[in-house]
Write a protein that binds this DNA or RNA. Structure first.
Lengths: 188, 188
DNA sequence: ACCTGAACACCGTTCAAGT
DNA sequence: ACCTGAACACCGTTCAAGT
């Protein structure tokens, strides 16, 4: 049942190893050469499976987003905070997940798991769904970047008065979902 | 009045040239070696003025954010959409501006021009100010990344149904400012 | 079909040495 | 004080050649 596999590695396997490397060492250390070494292969071998590093990262991003899961059945309802949290959690599941997703063109508006989920939570308001997605991405990107900075030593202590990340996320969602549900925004 | 300047270049001048390079060629082409060449200097010379590329980029980010301008006098009022737009416009003023600001630690919560401006517009609600800042950054980052992708050829046409960027930004701000002004969010 | 070997054109950073 | 010269340890990518 598995498709023909004559070579040692196929795309799915390579993406898995890349994801493992990403989570262990972070995006700056996810290089084609390190990935090749991890696969016991020459760097040039990767270019048989992927046309470029961008191509590879796009596949990694798609895999990260797959954690969001299936969009709700038509007729089912999803709350905005639930939808947003599912997306954030998928991005947080791997180190630098938000940056990988952001850097790949995986978020071209339209067909994306994340966007579809938000559309269902926002009554098919495309502009609102995109805006919420941008908030979730911006939030997670900053959170993960600060993690990376803290682990690398050079980070001021959380500055005491700085609201905790969860507060910020909850506040953003509260503002956004309070605003939603009114009619004037984009329903004309 | 100008401080002692015996060498050919000081930090401010180098940042100006870096900003020019950034705007003309984008962040991936803003390398220490190209910057040095532009300054008619060896790459190693830059390390007299900046301890690392990160250090240089932090200075560039600060310069980008300086476009936001002074925070409002105490007592003056700023609307949330106005504040958010001033920040977005500063980021949009240079190619890849949002990415540079994001990658530098210039947005450690607390003392930042952007955060202060939003605090004034949001009645000193720190969590709300941070959330709005994350939306503005996420939005601008995606917009500029798509610009970069489009100029590089490999971009699907705006997909027709995809809401225009300004609509998305306006919708996000509308949701956020409709949510604000209520008491329950963080005033306890 | 899938991979090796070797090369090309780059990177950021360090450090002795010059002026 | 400020910069050069040379090196170190890397990058992504291409391409002929092997199997």
């Amino acid at each position: 049942m598995t498709p023909a596999r004559t070579g040692r590695h196929d795309r799915e396997h390579i993406v898995s190893v890349a994801l493992d490397l990403l989570d262990r060492f972070g995006l700056p250390d996810l290089t084609m050469r390190r990935l090749a070494a991890e696969l016991d292969v020459q760097p040039s071998a990767l270019y048989w499976h992927f046309s470029s590093k961008q191509d590879l990262l796009a596949a990694v991003a798609e895999r990260i987003l797959s954690r969001i899961g299936a969009p709700p059945e038509p007729g089912t309802t999803v709350s905005l905070p639930d939808a947003a949290r599912r997306i954030r959690d998928a991005l947080l599941a791997y180190r630098d997940g938000a940056e990988v997703v952001m850097s790949s063109a995986a978020l071209r508006p339209g067909p994306s798991r994340a966007h579809d989920l938000l559309l269902a939570a926002l009554d098919e308001d495309a502009a609102a769904a995109t805006a919420v997605l941008q908030f979730v991405l911006g939030h997670t990107l900053i959170v993960q970047q600060r993690m990376h900075a803290e682990s690398h030593g050079a980070a001021a202590p959380p500055s005491a008065d700085s609201p905790v990340d969860q507060d910020v996320f909850a506040t953003g969602l509260a503002l956004l979902s309070r605003g939603a549900g009114r009619s004037a925004v984009s329903q004309g």
